[in-house]
Design a binder for these strands. Structure first.
Lengths: 257, 257
DNA sequence: TCAAAAGTGTTGTACTTACACCCATGT
DNA sequence: ACATGGGTGTAAGTACAACACTTTTGA
């Protein structure tokens, strides 16, 4: 069956940059597909595909729904957070014809979902951000990935985004480690803790024992109500030092007292 | 001539929220088109139109180029700043068929360009934001406008955006008035001044006399080099008081000395 | 009992806020 | 001269970066 229009139309796809976090890894995880077909056969690609469109009264699916569907089909992953990133439509970005793609950032709580190969892909797998950057990527997916990382790095400083990457219950060191991973910078234990707790969105729910040496860290989970309110009211949560910082002198000074 | 595809495809358009600023007005200006055809004949709409696509080797124009072209065609305005806002693609947003639109925010230095009616529109005119919100708007353009205002309000606090709305040479009171207009909040004269000058992107270039009573304000323009550097390095420029503010007590206290 | 790791408190500095004061212009 | 409005300085108060101290765990 074919479909005819009086002017040429572009194909429209969605592509997803799916981030995950493993407490044991020193880097963010990204889910990549190995392309099974030409063009760019064998290259790494972001999961994604065509948006379902119909010409009748029912016009098809929403863009965000398309992103969720493609992620589920291609990788078997159900996302916890989804946000539109940017729309890429440069002529020539796909050699087969004009393709405009709406890119999304997706976050998942757990990378346990064994990423499995779907019908459109030779294979889907979690790759560390560092490794991902070393791969050859199809189309303009490198550019999309870079923009996604930049956005994540930027947004994490004023929105409580990182939380969507952790399991339901987590410890303060895990949360801090996550932010250090995303921002690629060391963060002060005490100050990070205070900043997070001042948000008032966390509940203490016991502690985790048996982690090896050291004091057992407290376990936290979200106060969903307070979290939603905070998100709506646009809280500011910046765990990054000001770079110019206040105490610059007077370290030895204090020791003398 | 007709174009045939094996799957149905959406039409893709660009729509622009074009902001302008008039120092004499107490509100931001938005450029609106009055729709000449059904659907929504007579309603207000954002300037925009179809992205040019070709099926051959030359695949057509870039999305951003489409936005610039439509603005020029429909309103005769050349924009100074253009930024992609969001892509709207909900099924049913256009009753005629599936249409996905890539929305842009555009800023112009001067609203002098007499907005003139183009071929696709019954009329294009600058309208204050307040008036725009009171109009009936076509499609989901109300939603697009609201998102654009929210983005502008948010972004202006950490990026030197507002500058793109002023003529080449401007005074500090004008710049402050612009920010007060965008943010819809009064700003302290001295503090605003200090914050702006601390950025180090302005050059003093004389002063403006003959404005009526009062001291003649200094004229400024950009140090382009410093401005670009600042933009690249992601300066933070937040003219908005912290809401909790420091001096809360001790006002009467000082008077007594 | 010691090392390791997490929780908690302390402190100087720098920055922000709200003004006050001084200056320049037109009437 | 004086009213109007813009430029400039300043003190109080606060937040925060750095880091010391305390507590709890496993070996």
């Amino acid at each position: 069956m074919s479909h005819t229009y009086s002017y040429p139309r572009p194909a429209v796809t969605v592509d997803c940059v799916l981030f995950g976090f493993r407490p044991d890894a020193a880097d963010l995880q990204v889910l990549l597909i190995e392309r099974a077909d030409e063009p760019h056969e064998g290259a790494a690609a972001l999961p994604g595909g065509f948006v379902e469109v119909r010409d009748g009264g029912d016009q098809g699916e929403d863009l965000e729904a398309a992103a969720r569907r493609e992620l589920l089909e291609e990788t078997g992953v159900k996302v916890d957070y989804l946000e539109q990133l940017y729309t890429f439509g440069k002529p020539g970005r796909d050699p087969r014809g004009r393709v405009i793609t709406v890119a999304y950032i997706a976050l998942v709580r757990s990378t346990d979902h064994a990423a499995r190969a779907g019908s459109d892909a030779a294979g889907a797998s979690w790759v560390s951000l560092r490794d991902a950057r070393a791969r050859v990527m199809a189309f303009d997916h490198r550019e999309i990935l870079d923009m996604a990382v930049a956005r994540l790095r930027g947004k994490v400083r004023y929105a409580p985004l990182g939380f969507a990457l952790l399991p339901e219950r987590f410890t303060m060191p895990e949360l801090r480690s996550l932010y250090e991973t995303i921002l690629d910078a060391p963060l002060d234990r005490g100050n990070f803790r205070n900043a997070v707790l001042r948000l008032g969105v966390l509940k203490k729910v016991g502690q985790r024992k048996g982690n090896g040496a050291g004091r057992a860290p407290d376990l936290y989970q979200f106060d969903k109500r307070a979290y939603d309110r905070a998100t709506r009211e646009g809280i500011s949560f910046d765990p990054v030092p000001d770079s110019k910082g206040p105490p610059r002198v007077a370290r030895a000074e204090r020791k003398r007292r």
